[in-house]
């Protein structure tokens, strides 16, 4: 069974570059953009999956980190685009159009936000944790709307995609390659992390916190570290998402976004490394197909989701690979 899941994982993972490659041959740049979108959303959900799948922390506020990553890109690039320094009071900090710098800022900013939100929210658990993360996410949403300096409710448009050394990021397939490489690296790192002593301890803390405490580990600290890493990855995805659309707006902070990340994980199969990837791809495909069928396509997504939750526990990979390898 494990081999079967491995084959399915490989197939799902390789379907992304296969679709993008085929679209390149057929000269369909929009499909490449769809594949890029799926890869970025998958990255965001892979981040959440560390907290949710491995740590058992149902965060309904991960859009906060996604949005912070997006705004890190938006703010830095808008200053570079208008040649107005970000800070010029004591020291001068210019905006930048360089992706690696933007990514670094996005990761650090969302990690700090995750540290603050996590330190408060992890004092509680269960339903409290869900409601509190949701509320903090909403706090960022309203802050982004009411803070007029960076577009307020209208958001920020960035006219040219940011630069990556050696690539022309405006060519869809090159940007896809970049995003896919990041996704692959993060998935590899997540696989290593899950098998590391930290990952094992985190997994154990989800299953039985008392026992973990008895052997001298602190569940709170394990969960906080996981929450921070998780937020940072989702923040990185946010920066990429903003670069894909060349636009950031408060909707990146919206709680529906947080809900969708959880949906990706569960559609794909919770607690599985490639679950979020499968879920995000499935969602983007559904979105693309159903939005052609009806203006009210979300009603079908709702119905499918309801059926998956009620009857097909284990998600896509669970249904294909069987339940024997589920982590719980």
């Amino acid at each position: 069974m494990i081999r079967r899941e491995g084959i399915i994982n490989t197939l799902i993972f390789l379907s992304l570059p296969a679709v993008a490659g085929a679209a390149l041959l057929l000269d369909e740049p929009f499909t490449i953009t769809l594949a890029t979108r799926a890869a970025i959303l998958a990255l965001a959900a892979v981040g959440l999956n560390l907290a949710l799948g491995l740590g058992g922390l149902v965060s309904l506020g991960h859009a906060a980190f996604f949005g912070i990553g997006g705004y890190a890109m938006g703010i830095l690039a808008s200053h570079a685009q208008s040649y107005v320094p970000l800070i010029d009071t004591w020291i001068v900090i210019e905006g930048t159009k360089s992706m690696p710098v933007i990514w670094l800022v996005a990761v650090i900013a969302s990690a700090f936000a995750a540290l603050a939100i996590g330190a408060l929210s992890l004092r509680t658990s269960g339903v409290y944790f869900i409601m509190i993360t949701l509320a903090f996410g909403q706090m960022f949403y309203y802050f982004a709307i009411s803070w007029p300096a960076y577009g307020g409710e209208d958001g920020l448009s960035i006219y040219v995609r940011n630069d990556f050394p050696g690539l022309n990021t405006l060519v869809p397939i090159q940007f896809f390659g970049l995003v896919f490489t990041i996704l692959a690296l993060v998935l590899w790192a997540m696989g290593r992390l899950a098998a590391s002593p930290f990952g094992l301890a985190l997994n154990a803390a989800r299953q039985n916190a008392e026992r973990v405490e008895t052997v001298g580990l602190t569940p709170f600290r394990l969960r906080l570290v996981a929450f921070v890493i998780s937020g940072a990855i989702t923040g990185l995805a946010g920066a990429l998402f903003a670069d894909l659309n060349r636009f950031v707006s408060p909707s990146m902070f919206s709680w529906q976004m947080s809900g969708e990340f959880i949906v990706f994980i569960v559609l794909g199969g919770i607690g599985r490394l490639f679950g979020p990837v499968a879920g995000a791809c499935l969602f983007v495909v559904l979105e693309h197909m159903l939005s052609g069928v009806s203006e009210f396509w979300l009603i079908y997504v709702g119905a499918i989701l309801l059926l998956v939750v009620l009857f097909a526990r284990g998600g896509l990979i669970g249904t294909l690979a069987g339940r024997a390898v589920a982590h719980d």
């Binding site: 309904l60 959880i262 569960v266 009603i299 997504v301 119905a303 989701l305 309801l306 009620l310």
Partner: peptide, 9 residues
């Protein structure tokens, strides 16, 4: 959370 999120949609 998921089932009631689906109900919202």
């Amino acid at each position: 959370v998921l089932a009631t999120f689906a109900l919202i949609l």
